[in-house]
Amino acid sequence: MELLGYYNYWVFAIVLMVGFYAVIVRNNLIKKLLGLAIFQSAVFLMYITMDKVEGATAPIIQEGVTDQIYSNPLPQVLILTAIVVGVSTTALGLAMVVRIKEAYGSIEEDDIIAKDRKS
């Protein structure tokens, strides 16, 4: 039971590296972007894990309740905005992939490199 206190961080480490693996090994550009999105989500998980306080509740203050403790609002604010920024940057990456497909006829990295070498 003692070790379960670290379980969130272990999942963070594993998911982070699973995303990283997709980025470095997979040749497909969309797969790389999916890997990047997983990587990003893992970082979100780490921040949100840090905000938790044992026995606390979401940081929405109830009137007349004085003995309630609340979780830390700061990591939540940072990650809330990061999620929205994440989707916009992913969309930008996908737009680039679409243009690469139109220019090279492929979204596989080795095909693109082969085509570049030829010309």
């Binding site: 998980l45 949100i48 905000d51 938790k52 979401a58 940081p59 929405i60 929205v84």
Partner: peptide
């Protein structure tokens, strides 16, 4: 991920993750 955020007391973040 959204469900996990909710368990970790981050209701706002869970809502954002689910919608986006």
């Amino acid at each position: 991920m959204a469900a996990n955020f909710f368990i970790l007391d981050a209701a706002d973040v869970a809502l954002t993750e689910a919608a986006i």
